[in-house]
Write a protein that binds this DNA or RNA. Structure first.
Lengths: 195, 195
DNA sequence: GTCTATAGGCAGATAGAC
DNA sequence: GTCTATCTGCCTATAGAC
């Protein structure tokens, strides 16, 4: 199974998540409806409530799955690469891949809608950023210790800055429909951290 | 008149814009309604349509006014300061002020909702970023020529990166309710450009 | 698990009186 | 300019049959 058919060859609950995930990443949580999912999936709105009782529960599950999946991707980077700078590049590539699918990061999108989200979703969004930043922080600390990176602030502050920069670059690059804009920003960011 | 009473001491059309602007910056364009404005303003929904025929027209006017107002603030920075690095700091302060009001940049918010916006609004959002980046580009070029800044890319690419970084830092800092997070990111950003 | 049917509410918008 | 009244459509959600 490839990423391409992930929306058509799994159980119904999973396919609902797949479709909802894409809709949130493209349109936002407040701009999609159960009707949108039902139409794409070829079942009725009522059936969706069997799998996820309400939009809030669906949304929370969406963020949880996304966080786990992202964590797995980060662990894979750790296995595949040892150089901290290569890890940072791979990190940015994860974002670039999302952008190439004309999507925004799920949690970046939800950060914009943060004030309108149910509390369970708000907490889940912050957990995503916390976990991502914890990973980055470790990579930055390693790079610093090896002399491969030189940070202008604490590893924590630097990690926060990196996440913000990539989310923002993604947000605007998507509006322009220009992935190069993202790549150029990421490239400047990392060159500013190279020792 | 101060910024504090801007929502209560002007003509109705202006007050509608003021309220709508805040609602978009806090909740997003897809998460507020004519009913919200009407309730705050103490008039009926129907009356709003006299001033702005539809939500699309209201939204476009919102972005246009925001762009003009931001341009005026940038011109004021040019008058008040000459040092390019001081201008960059003042630029970031414009963003920080918005964040302190627990708001997101209007156009950063609309960038998240970009795919769902009417075309007139999409174009207006890109115009905002274009004008902002043009101003930054000039400041960066001046800083480069004076030897006060050293850029890792073209002035245009650097300007794009700066806008993305500040928008992203703002987006996430607002979710955490932590303005310091934004300040720390801006500070690292500019220290990386200092010659 | 999926369906039909429907509830109850809110969205953006319009007609026409004042 | 603002109102009342109303329209049409979509939203989330539920009840209950199959």
């Amino acid at each position: 199974m490839t990423d391409q058919d992930e929306e058509s060859s799994a159980g119904t609950s999973t396919r609902i998540l797949d479709i909802a995930e894409r809709l949130v990443q493209v349109r936002g949580f407040n701009a999609f409806s159960y009707a949108d999912i039902a139409k794409e999936l070829g079942i009725t709105k009522a059936s969706l409530h069997y799998h996820y009782p309400g939009k809030a529960e669906l949304g929370a599950e969406l963020v949880t799955r996304y966080t786990i999946r992202f964590g797995v991707a980060l662990a894979a980077v750790d296995v595949r690469l040892t150089d901290p700078r290569a890890k940072l590049d791979a990190f940015a590539e994860l974002y670039a891949d999302v952008l190439r699918g004309q999507r925004m990061c799920l949690c970046g999108m939800l950060a914009a809608e943060y004030q309108t989200l149910p509390k369970t979703m708000q907490e889940a969004v912050l957990r995503f950023f916390n976990e991502t930043e914890t990973w980055l922080e470790r990579v930055l600390r390693e790079g610093q210790e090896q002399g491969a990176l030189h940070l202008r602030a604490t590893p924590q502050e630097t990690a926060q800055m990196i996440v913000g920069t990539l989310e923002g670059a993604m947000l605007i690059a998507r509006s322009y429909g220009d992935v190069n804009r993202f790549e150029a920003a990421a490239s400047q960011l990392f060159s500013s951290l190279a020792a």
